[in-house]
Amino acid sequence: MQKNADDIVVFLIIVSALILALAAFIAIMVYLYRKKQISFFQNLEQIKLDHEKTLMSAQLEMQESTFQHISREIHDNISLSLTLAKLRLNTLNRDDRNEVEEKVTASVTLLTQCINDLSDISKSLNSDIIKQQGLTRALEDEVQRIRDAGMFTLDSWLTGNPIYMDAQKELIIFRVIQEAFNNIIKHAEARHAELSLHYDRERLYIAIDDDGNGFDTRLAREHQKAGLRNMETRVKMLRGTMIISSLPEFGTNLSFTIPID
């Protein structure tokens, strides 16, 4: 009888030990998982913070570049035109009616030019159109603005079904395209350029080609050209890719692939 009771105790101890061992195994599993999960979410938070930091820095860069653009436009065009107008009006011989008429007309033309330039700057800086009507509509206006400037001919294509993305994201894409055209205007001396956009369900593909001077991409990267670096940073921020193909005298091709999510 005593032996049977001992057997039961031994048996119960073994079973309890087995169950406790399994429970401990599961508890360790849960503990390790939770620990890993906490570390994972901390990392995720850090990545989010880094991304926000990059976004902020890109916004500051964009702002800085915009200020430079405004400053250049004011200095090169508006200020010059206003100075000329002022000069003409200051040197006005009020007794000579013909000269008065000629100089006032020329000054009015210069002031009209200034107003148009200011209007162009204002339009190109205004991001409301992107928020209200989207990227494609804003690009249509931008293309028209460049065509009107008459520095080179510009063709544009849009294929696929446009998908509206986050306004902030569309603004960054818009500024990247603007930067690309600014580079063509400033450096390429192109006669013809093309802009094409293609939307599929997951990505937006953008290509910008010109037949201008071109450049050595390796040298440009080595010298960390600010314009290119800005574009690259902004595209990377959108988890996209940017490919530059260019050779001196053979024009330039810029391709961007931006994920839509």
Binding site: M29, Y33, K36, F40
Partner: peptide
């Protein structure tokens, strides 16, 4: 399964 659970990214609460 337990090994892969610990190896992969623990997005969902266990």
């Amino acid at each position: 399964y337990f090994y892969e659970l610990l190896k992969n990214e623990p997005i969902i609460d266990l």
